[in-house]
């Protein structure tokens, strides 16, 4: 296996503050009274905390179906729940289960399904009723190995940010926030692991994508060594460096909406 860290990444990635912008906007509200939040889109059923949990359920259902279809594409192929013949059958790329992308997508698939099943069971009759596998078309049947991994990784990364962006829609001190965060953390682990897997495959020349950071970086800008070893990082700027960023429900639904068939 070749080195998975081109020299360019070592320097460039640490210099970048690519994850900082949105976090700064969000963190400005820290320690201030909670501002009134806009509503979640009315297409998500329920009110209050239960609407937020239905939003989570919609995303988990999408992820679970994406994983199932991605595994078909990477391995033996097969028939999806799609009713349309053009997308109903996925031809497999016939990769071995020992390949690390197949290995981790196989490992994570049942976890996403478990998140979906947990939320669905917990919500019971309040759960969003329009979930069915036939609703998802990810276009996987024509994707390369690299594209499949990218799409799964993007879904996990979106999940991390979507949960964070949904927090303001919970009621303050909601008893469900901790459970939602307990799911969100696993999405972060998955996103990091799949990034690492992609970096390894990139180093081996198997996928063409550039090496990417496995976690939000701290930008070098503004650092100066403090007297006691503290870094004096832009005092009182309200910006948290090196933290995951949020994505609003509108942004999330715009990103994933194309995968959900309306017919």
């Amino acid at each position: 296996m070749t080195n998975i860290l081109p020299a360019a990444y070592n320097r460039r990635a640490l210099m970048q503050g690519t994850f900082i912008g949105a976090a700064g906007l969000m963190a400005a509200g820290l320690l201030l009274p909670t501002k009134a939040s806009a509503s979640l889109p009315s297409t998500i059923p329920g009110t209050g905390d239960f609407q937020v949990l239905n939003y989570a359920l919609q995303l988990e259902d999408l992820e679970a179906n994406l994983y199932a279809q991605a595994l078909l594409r990477l391995t033996t192929g097969g028939t999806t729940a799609q009713t349309s013949a053009s997308v109903g059958t996925i031809t497999g790329l016939q990769l071995s289960s020992s390949q690390i992308d197949v290995q981790y997508i196989t490992e994570f698939a049942p976890i996403e399904a478990a998140h979906r099943d947990f939320l669905k069971a917990a919500l019971g009759s309040i759960a969003i009723t329009t979930l069915k596998p036939s609703k998802y078309n990810f276009g996987l049947q024509t994707m390369t190995r690299s594209q499949v991994l990218d799409l799964v990784l993007e879904a996990e990364a979106t999940g991390v940010q979507a949960y964070l962006g949904a927090i303001p829609y919970f009621k303050a001190k909601s008893p469900y926030l901790q459970t939602a965060a307990a799911i969100q953390g696993t999405e972060a682990r998955h996103a990091t692991t799949l990034t690492l897997v992609r970096n390894i495959l990139s180093g081996m020349g198997i996928v063409s994508d550039p090496i990417a950071p496995v976690a939000p970086l701290r930008g070098d800008g503004g650092i100066s060594p403090g007297a006691s070893g503290y870094l004096s990082a832009t005092p009182n700027s309200g910006t948290v460096y090196g933290a995951d960023v949020t994505m609003s429900p509108d942004q999330v639904l715009a990103r994933v909406g194309g995968f959900i068939r309306t017919t």
Binding site: F170, A188, R189
Partner: peptide
Amino acid sequence: NNTAQTAATIYSTECRHSAA
């Protein structure tokens, strides 16, 4: 929830570090 959200952005970063 503002404070909870900010804390959560740090929390999931720790989850990422742990996984890596």
